[in-house]
């Protein structure tokens, strides 16, 4: 069963002056059960809006969201006990301690102080748990928000940039936490800007641009989509190298001014070595051209941007 199903979701915000912003423009999204699902997109792509629609906070202009099989516009309360969330910067009562905040929320679903203590421990706030939230640093607030999301021991986590404002150690902790939660069989839906983090944490990703999904699937699928395989060659004289490779029948171009990209399956790389050696050229480096999520992301979101501008 799909944990999250979004179909043809459109959201148009209306401002007082009558201006309209299309935040989501026919978004389709399907998140299967279990594992970490990365939801990526540049600023203003509509990530937060999607999450708000999923949580019934914002009413879609068109389309529908289903979470754990129920329509989130009307029946969300039937499944909310199984869903932990962070929406943008988590907001809690500044004049209560972190512990009191979580206890008050927990009581709404019969969750006791013991569970609250455990969660505070887990997010590294045990020491400051009894201080007022308004004395927390923004990273500590973020940790408390993560704690609130974990408090229901949820099957599904919907997290909007959970690593926001955290230090490098905190970012790594969040990444490990997400991975662990995913490995436990929970479904973790996480929006993020930090692509390198997602690349190594997520099982599946969707890339959002201007309110539409421009790529979705397993990380490997998204990385390979639309990109020919290739190898990167480095040697002292790039121009000679390109000439030699081209005359040997390869499709080679100078990339980034300091190496050569040859379009070919990486398994055949030995042919490149020979072609160069035949011309008396010796390479200093040869490696497969592995697309990273960042490159794919920039390509996809730029294309979509240009498409939208026309």
């Amino acid at each position: 069963m799909a944990v999250i199903e979004i179909e043809g979701l459109r959201k148009q915000y209306r401002q007082l002056r009558g201006e309209r912003t299309v935040a989501l423009d026919g978004l389709d999204l399907f998140v299967p059960e279990g594992g970490v699902f990365g939801f990526l997109g540049p600023n203003g792509a509509g990530k937060t809006t999607t999450i708000r629609c999923l949580l019934g906070l914002v009413r879609p202009t068109r389309g529908a969201c289903r979470l754990l099989g129920v329509d989130t516009g009307s029946d969300l309360s039937r499944v909310i006990r199984r869903v932990g969330t962070i929406v943008e910067t988590p907001a809690l009562y500044p004049r209560f301690s972190g512990r009191r905040n979580l206890e008050l929320l927990g009581r709404l679903h019969g969750i006791g102080p013991k569970a609250v203590g455990d969660v505070l421990e887990r997010v590294g706030l045990a020491e400051r748990a009894d201080h007022l939230v308004r004395t927390y640093s923004s990273g500590m607030r973020q940790r408390l928000g993560i704690g609130a999301a974990l408090l229901k021991d949820p099957e599904v986590l919907i997290l909007d940039e959970p690593a926001n404002g955290l230090d490098p150690a905190g970012i790594k902790e969040v990444r490990d936490l997400l991975r662990r939660l995913g490995d436990e069989g929970r479904t973790v839906f996480v929006s993020s800007h930090i692509l390198t983090e997602i690349q190594h944490t997520a099982d599946r990703v969707a890339i959002l641009s201007r309110g539409r999904s421009v790529a979705a699937g397993s990380v490997a699928q998204v990385l390979s989509a639309g990109r020919a395989q290739g190898v990167i060659v480095r040697l002292a004289d790039l121009t000679d190298g390109v000439t030699a490779l081209r005359s040997a029948g390869f499709e080679a171009v100078i990339s980034n001014h300091d190496d050569i990209r040859v379009t070919m399956p990486p398994a055949d790389a030995a042919r490149v070595t020979r072609a160069l050696a035949d011309q008396g050229l010796y390479l200093t480096e040869l490696r497969p051209d592995e697309a990273d999520l960042e490159t794919v992301f920039l390509e996809l979101t730029n294309e979509a941007g240009r498409g939208g501008a026309q």
């Binding site: 949580l55 969300l76 909310i80 929406v87 943008e88 988590p90 809690l92 009562y93 500044p94 709404l108």
Partner: peptide, 14 residues
């Protein structure tokens, strides 16, 4: 002002 309405609604959506 504190944005806590959002938090509360993710615990009690009614």
């Amino acid at each position: 002002h504190a944005g806590t309405v959002t938090t509360l609604l993710t615990w009690e959506p009614r």
